[in-house]
Structures are given as structure tokens and as C-alpha cells.
Design a protein around this nucleic acid. Structure first.
Lengths: 149, 149
DNA sequence: CCCTAATTCGCAATGCTTGCGAATTAACAA
DNA sequence: TTGTTAATTCGCAAGCATTGCGAATTAGGG
């Protein structure tokens, strides 16, 4: 169980990598720590802006890219804007067709089960995406209400 | 094992749905039939253009959208341009980190195995993406050659 | 052969992300 | 503290993938 790095640990990791620790980055480290909402860059930018008006979306993207490159963040592509997950555990995701909500899911690692068609392919990671209806949306039959994040 | 629909079957399905069968669509039906390369709209457009100069990228997108809506095509989001898979079997994919090659992979359906975190989520589909190195790229150590499709 | 709704297709517009460059700033050493 | 320098910030423009729109065309049933 690799746990999510604390803002302090990220500061150390950044400096160790020859990267600078700016106020903008420290803010983002904090906003990401323990964050389970799988935010997009835009969402994170909005939250960050509230606390630090003037921070730029460009900087948010930059920092997210750096974090992902260091393996401290998971870059999730589900169509539309990319989502970022500070939980770098080996885990998977469920995505609600109706409201778009993304949640963490833990399952037995599928690269240990027998698969056909993987001839010689060396697996680095295996990620499952469960699509369907979240409990809240499953109830309301054809509810079209789509809430962001 | 739901098999891939033939161009003729798609013609029937389209008319049944009140959609017209145009030369452009027939061409795309043919290009997609048995196609295992997981092409992007752009790639498909290029191939189609060779046979039917003047066909528009817009039309390719339109037809792919229609096919996907009818469930005759799988819309795959892996970052970058969407890929389309005429194989609508319950299957998964491997993606090479180096060359981007996408291949079909068959694995035991993961929605039958025990998962934690799926509380009340009703699963419509579970798709696994295996990331890593394909046999060809695994050999060449740090080869940066990235071939399209 | 006609009618009409569906389609094609080009262009503009959108949404997401990255490139670029000038001004600023963190971090390290003197 | 001050100086030096490379990293960073940030706004804008550019890029890629995709969709909206509308005029002209066409499939397909009557």
C-alpha cells in the first residue's frame, strides 16, 4: 500500500529533482493531498484561484504535468478533460454514465489473471474502468441532471 | 461471442433505424469490417479518401458517431484522438507506451470478480487497459521511434 | 418522377492542452 | 545580505480533436 505523499514530502521530492518549490506549487500540493474527487485541471484551477487569485491555469497544468512525470499523480483519460488522481496506489475507477462522478475501486490485480492476446506484451499497469450508474443516479430513472465533479 | 456485423447487415440496420445508406457510409462500413487496427477518425478518413476523394472528415465523424450510438462500434478513449473498434465483443485492450499500438485482449470479465468500492454502482461495462511495451518495442531498449497507428 | 427528411461537407467555433517568451523568483553560494 | 542563474510564472497564441451550423445535395418511399 503506497500511501499518498504529503505536501511536505512533495516539497522534498521537488527540490531533490532540481525543481523549485513556489507558493503556487505548495498550494496545489495541499489541494491535492487526500483529494478523492479526481479533479480536472480546470476544477483545480478554480479552487486554487479562490485561495490565490491570479494563479494561472497554465501553472496548474505545468505542476500537474510535473507531478505526473514524477509518478506522484495519476493522469486519467476518460474522454473530455483529463482527471488527476493523487492516489497512486494500484487501483481502478468507476465512472457514472449519468453524472460523470469518478470513484476509486479496488480489485484483484488483473495482470495476475490469465489473459489471451497479451503475447509477449510486458505489462506496466493494468487499469480497469467500470462504466455504469452510480447509486444516486441509478435511482432516478431517466434523470438528466448532470452535476459537475 | 457476438460477431462483428458485416457491411450488408449494417445497411439493413441503418435503414431499420430510419437512417440513409449513402456511398460514403457503405465505404466506411467496408473499411471497418474486420478492422483490427483501432483507427482514429483521421486515419479512417485518410484511407477512405484514397478510395473516395472528396469525402469529408466531418462525414467520417458523423458515421462513426452513428455507429457507436447503435452499439456497432466501440468508442475508445486513451488520450489523444479517440479510437474506434468494430469489435463489440466483451474484450479489452493493450496499449504500447512506445509505439501506441492498440491490440485486443481477452480476459475473464472483471465485473464477476470481487471488487471493493463499487458499493451500489451498477456496472454496464468493465474495460481494462493494459499499458506497457509491445513485443516489438520491448526489444529495442530506449528506441524512441514512434510509428503511427 | 416527386417530395421530403436525411445527409454531406466546409467552415467556424468549441474545449482542452501545450508552445513561446518576457518578467519574475527560488535557491544556492559568496 | 547580496548576487547569480536557472527555474518558474503567466498570458497569449497556436494546436489538436471534435462538434455546431447551414446551404446544397441526395436517398428512398409514395
Amino acid at each position: 500500500m503506497k500511501s499518498v505523499k504529503s505536501p511536505e514530502e512533495l516539497v522534498v521530492a521537488f527540490r531533490a529533482a532540481g525543481l523549485k518549490v513556489t507558493p503556487q506549487r505548495q498550494l496545489l500540493f495541499r489541494l491535492l493531498h487526500g483529494n478523492e474527487m479526481h479533479p480536472t485541471a480546470e476544477t483545480l484551477y478554480e479552487v486554487a484561484s479562490a485561495e490565490m487569485p491570479g494563479i494561472s491555469l497554465r501553472t496548474v497544468y505545468q505542476t500537474l504535468t510535473d507531478l505526473a512525470a514524477m509518478g506522484e499523480l495519476q493522469h486519467i483519460q476518460l474522454g473530455g478533460a483529463a482527471r488527476f488522481d493523487p492516489n497512486v496506489d494500484d487501483h481502478h475507477h468507476s465512472v457514472c454514465d449519468a453524472c460523470g462522478d469518478v470513484r476509486d475501486v479496488y480489485a484483484p490485480n488483473p495482470d495476475h489473471v490469465s489473459v489471451a492476446g497479451l503475447d509477449g506484451f510486458s505489462v506496466r499497469a493494468a487499469r480497469i474502468v467500470f462504466s455504469g450508474k452510480c447509486p444516486r443516479c441509478a435511482g432516478a430513472a431517466d434523470d438528466l441532471s448532470v452535476s459537475k465533479q
